[in-house]
């Protein structure tokens, strides 16, 4: 059963990568950004379907670190460095937000 699911997932991933890197005709940065958007779909699946609150918290925390890499690639594609500012501030805010949510999950007040 697990093996069947693994083979199914492998087929889907191979289809996506072949379509992205060999069929789709675009700049190299556009292909990398497509990979990033595909991984953001996985993160959103974990946010929606996570069985507990901590799973959703992990997904949101990882999303903040993922977005800084994606925004730096977008900045390279447009040759413009203000995307990097957005990425840095996004990562900072998501770090503070995960600390605050973790404290709430733990059951303590915020000024502890």
């Amino acid at each position: 059963m697990k093996l069947v699911r693994w083979i199914l997932g492998l087929i889907i991933l191979m289809a996506f990568f072949i379509a992205n890197f060999f069929v789709y005709d675009g700049a190299i940065y556009a292909k990398l950004i497509n990979v990033y958007l595909f991984s953001c779909l996985f993160v959103l699946y974990r946010v929606l379907a996570g069985p507990s609150a901590a799973d959703r918290l992990v997904a949101v925390d990882i999303f903040g670190i993922l977005i800084i890499g994606m925004l730096s690639i977008i900045g390279l594609a447009y040759q413009n460095d203000f995307f990097m500012d957005i990425g840095l501030i996004w990562a900072l805010l998501s770090f503070v937000a995960s600390l605050a949510f973790a404290k709430i999950l733990e059951g303590r007040s915020l000024d502890d």
């Binding site: 507990s52 609150a53 901590a54 918290l57 992990v58 925390d61 770090f95 995960s98 600390l99 973790a102 404290k103 999950l105 733990e106 059951g107």
Partner: peptide
């Protein structure tokens, strides 16, 4: 640091 805080919060809850 974020990973450590989330792991501890998950274990305590």
């Amino acid at each position: 640091v974020a990973a450590h805080v989330i792991a501890r919060a998950a274990h305590r809850s």
